[in-house]
Nucleic acid binder design. Sequence first.
DNA 1: AACGCCGCCTGATCGC
DNA 2: TGCGATCAGGCGGCGT
Length: 276
Amino acid sequence: MPESPEVEAFARWLKPQVLRRRIASVDVPKPRLVRPLRPAAFAGALQGCRIVGLRRCGKCLLWDLEHPGGRPDLLVSHLGMTGVWQVLAKGQPLPRHAAVVLGLGGRTVVMEDPRQFGHLRLGSDSMPRLGPDPLAPEFTAEELSVVLSGCRRPVKVCLMDPARLAGVGNLYASEALFLAGIDPSTPADAVAPEAVVRLHRALRDVLATAVERNLRALWSDRPMLYQQGGASGSPEQGGLWVYDRAGHSCHRCGAPIERLVQAGRSTYRCPRCQAR
DNA sequence: AACGCCGCCTGATCGC
DNA sequence: TGCGATCAGGCGGCGT
């Protein structure tokens, strides 16, 4: 479940390894995940392009490309639930669930996605419309207040709606609400102003910390935060506050963490630290 | 416009 | 021990 901190880390980690390189070859072992749907068309459009930029937008990784003639293009990739980007060492075999393989001349970059919920789309019209990005430096508590005030659904569901807020998924929505001491089932437009300020700060803290942690994980070839599950230690020890910790005791107060289902997704909360 | 719900997919886990 | 059933989950599409 890569969310914005994971995608941001992938972008920063990959950028120095792919920038200014030319795409010499394209292989599409999982054509279902790409647009244009026909692998030959997809590969043909990518082949020969130079990678001139790599950035994140919400949970998407954006590849700025330049065709041999100089025409710009955009490759939008989304990692879905289980997608990862890898740089293969020379002679290293393809991962089992490789979806797209880019040969960059002496360096091979692969998107792997076992559950195949991710996708790669070519063209600048491939970007979904997104709300403000809480990782952006200019994101303010006032902006968050506007996002919440226009929504009557539970605040957790609101935070996860990409049209309202970009890049926040299930894990960091639960973690931020814990840090802010807010019950996830509070209607978004009923969150008190001082709680909105706490939530703004919690979102920024939890996301920024996760970017740094994920970057260290990538450079040292260790699993990322979301790949460890909730059973490990407290956040100080590299674990999580509430996500995936149903039945375990709260790291802060000891009360058993609860699991509830909102809009069909698991939410985790501490009944004492996040009382109504 | 806002919201709920289904289906896509496969590894992990559970019950028998 | 082994096998089938169930579950998780982002998000696009569709129905209300």
